[in-house]
Structures are given as C-alpha cells and as structure tokens.
Simulated scan of single mutants.
Amino acid sequence: MRARIEEIVFDCSDPAQLVRFWAALLDVEPVDRTPDWSYIDVPGFTRIAFQAVPEKKAAKNRLHLDVNAGELGPATAEAEALGARRLGGVVTDEYGDFQVLQDPEGNEFCFVSG
C-alpha cells in the first residue's frame, strides 16, 4: 500500500479563530468550510485543518510543527502579538536554535533556526 498525508488536523474549540492565527503566522489565506471546520493551504506543504471538538486540550501535544521563521526574536514577538505564548527561553544545541510556543488554544509549536 502506498499512502500519503492528505492534511494535518488540529482539534480545537474555535476553528475560525485558530485558523486566522495560523494564517497570519504563515502568511496565507484562511478558509472556513463550515462553522466546525477551517483550513489553510501552505505552499510547498500539506493542508493544515482545524476541526471543532467538545473537549479541551488536556496535555502536551504528541506531535508539533517546527516552523522556520528566520530570526527567533522578531518571529517570537510577532507570534505573541498574534496570540501565541512563549514557553521557556531559546534552546541552543549543535543543530541550531529553537523557541517553543503555544498557539491561542495551547497547541505547542517551535520556531527553529539553524
């Protein structure tokens, strides 16, 4: 069998709000398919979708996105202005630097450089 990833889906309480955060962060247009389903199409990447679910996020994500946003400081400040929350400081290792953040619904993601 040969399978391919169709899209990555975030469970959330407010798809229309969360899609706008990610659309602004990734400089793409948000699409609201229904009140319970929104998405963005990121050039060179698979679709990222947001679906409404009744339960709240309860623990750390088991999967997250690493986003190369250039310089970490300015990118982090811009993401925070959009509603992200910084988790800890910049981490540096032999592969480069990264900053862990949460989107407005608490989903973790990292800005990476290096």
Rank of each mutant, 00 (worst) to 15 (best):
R2M: 12
A3Y: 05
A3M: 06
E6L: 04
E6N: 12
E6M: 01
E7R: 11
V9K: 03
V9F: 08
F10I: 13
F10N: 03
D11Y: 14
D11C: 05
C12F: 14
S13K: 12
D14E: 14
D14M: 07
P15T: 08
P15F: 07
A16E: 12
L18N: 11
R20G: 11
F21Q: 09
W22D: 02
W22P: 03
A23H: 09
A23L: 09
A24N: 08
L25Q: 04
L26P: 04
D27A: 11
D27V: 10
V28M: 00
V28P: 00
P30F: 12
P30A: 10
V31I: 10
D32N: 15
R33K: 04
R33T: 13
T34I: 01
P35C: 09
P35D: 13
P35V: 10
P35L: 04
Y39G: 02
I40P: 00
I40G: 04
D41A: 14
P43N: 01
G44I: 08
F45R: 03
F45N: 13
R47P: 03
R47I: 03
R47W: 07
R47M: 14
I48C: 07
I48R: 01
F50R: 07
Q51R: 10
A52N: 06
P54Q: 13
P54C: 08
K57D: 05
K57R: 15
K57Y: 10
A58S: 15
K60Q: 14
N61R: 07
L63R: 03
H64Y: 13
L65A: 08
D66K: 02
V67M: 05
V67Y: 00
A69W: 08
G73P: 00
A75S: 08
A75L: 02
A75E: 07
T76A: 15
T76W: 09
A77G: 05
E78H: 11
E78K: 11
A79Q: 01
E80V: 14
E80R: 06
E80S: 02
L82D: 09
L82R: 09
L82S: 07
L82G: 03
A84W: 03
R85H: 13
R85W: 06
L87W: 05
G88W: 09
V90F: 15
V90H: 04
V91K: 09
V91N: 04
T92V: 15
D93R: 15
E94N: 12
Y95C: 10
Y95G: 07
D97P: 00
F98A: 02
V100I: 13
L101V: 12
L101K: 09
Q102R: 08
Q102Y: 01
D103T: 12
P104C: 11
P104H: 10
E105C: 06
E105N: 11
G106C: 11
G106A: 06
G106E: 05
N107P: 10
E108P: 13
E108G: 09
E108M: 03
F109N: 01
C110R: 01
C110S: 03
F111S: 08
